[in-house]
């Protein structure tokens, strides 16, 4: 018996795939968790028990206490409800689970809310079941250090590690930059599971710089004044990674989305959102 039959179907397929690359990208959905569970449409347990709600005088919105901006987002949602002449109905998601797949939001929304605050406007970042409102504020990812000698990322010596919150837009931008550099000019990048873990690795000295979501840094410092020494540095030679943050709604709620977009526009224009952000000293600007 031959010990290793040579792969037999590679050559034909190699030619064929060139033809297939432009094929339709149908079914583009949210990526799966580590254990493969692949959805074209998210599924919520006992989703059939949630019928059409009857009280249209309320704006039912969710904020998640695990989100660093949940209080700010709640204040903005209240303002949106007021602008729409609706009664705000806040549901605070309370759980201690650290990280969850985006598809879990589907079940939360079926049960509790029409609008879930606190999602980044990422092109192609959501499945067909979800839609984002316009952004109500803009913020970004920041490079953070405890080293007083570092003024910008450019001051970091090659070979010194960066702890990046893994898989984020800023992480991807950083990796794209590094891959364009020669190996001797690169910083090692250690992917960290969460913003908090990236900050912890910085505090432990595992990394020289952490790349984290600015609201997460704000929330951490707000909760622990001893972390005031954590200092944001200029991202150069990289450009800043700034992103709009809006609310997630179910894709079929087109009328609601249009109404909320209009309300956000009005609240941005009259300075309401900027006032809320300033009130919390929150590291964001009202979206234009």
């Amino acid at each position: 018996m031959p010990r290793s039959p040579a792969p037999s179907r590679l050559s034909g397929l190699a030619a064929a795939w060139l033809l297939a690359v432009p094929m339709a990208a149908a079914g583009l959905g949210p990526a799966a968790a580590q254990e493969p569970e692949f959805y074209d449409v998210p599924y919520a347990y006992e989703q059939w028990i949630y019928g059409r709600r009857l009280d249209e005088s309320q704006l039912r919105y969710c904020v998640d206490r695990r989100d660093p901006d949940w209080e700010v987002a709640g204040a903005i949602a209240d303002a949106i409800a007021q602008a729409l002449l609706l009664e705000p109905q806040r549901h605070v998601v309370e759980t201690e689970i650290v990280v969850e797949d985006i598809t879990r939001v589907y079940g939360v929304m079926l049960e509790h809310c029409d609008v879930h605050m606190g999602f980044k406007l990422i092109p192609e970042g959501y499945g067909d079941w979800a839609a984002l409102t316009r952004a109500y504020y803009e913020t970004g990812y920041v490079f953070v250090t405890t080293n007083p000698d570092l003024k910008s990322l450019a001051d970091l010596a090659p070979g010194r590690p960066i702890g990046a919150t893994g898989g984020t837009s800023a992480h991807i931008r950083l990796m794209a930059y590094l891959l364009a550099q020669s190996p001797d000019r690169r910083w090692p990048v250690y992917p960290m599971g969460t913003n908090d873990l990236a900050l912890d690795s910085l505090l432990r000295g595992t990394v020289a710089v952490a790349l984290v979501w600015a609201p997460s840094l704000w929330a951490r410092q707000r909760a622990d004044p001893a972390l005031a020494a954590l200092r944001e540095i200029d991202p150069r030679p990289l450009p800043p990674t700034r992103m709009g943050v809006g609310a997630l709604i179910l894709a079929n709620e087109t009328f609601l989305r249009a109404a909320i977009d209009e309300a956000i526009g009005a609240l941005a224009a009259d300075g309401t959102i900027a006032g809320i952000l300033d009130g919390y000293h929150f590291p964001a600007k009202a979206a234009p």
Binding site: D64, R66, D67, D69, V99, D101, F119, I122, G167, T168
Partner: peptide
């Protein structure tokens, strides 16, 4: 870049 939320990834 699938970092849509802070908790939800």
């Amino acid at each position: 870049p699938l970092d849509p939320g802070t908790i939800y990834t």
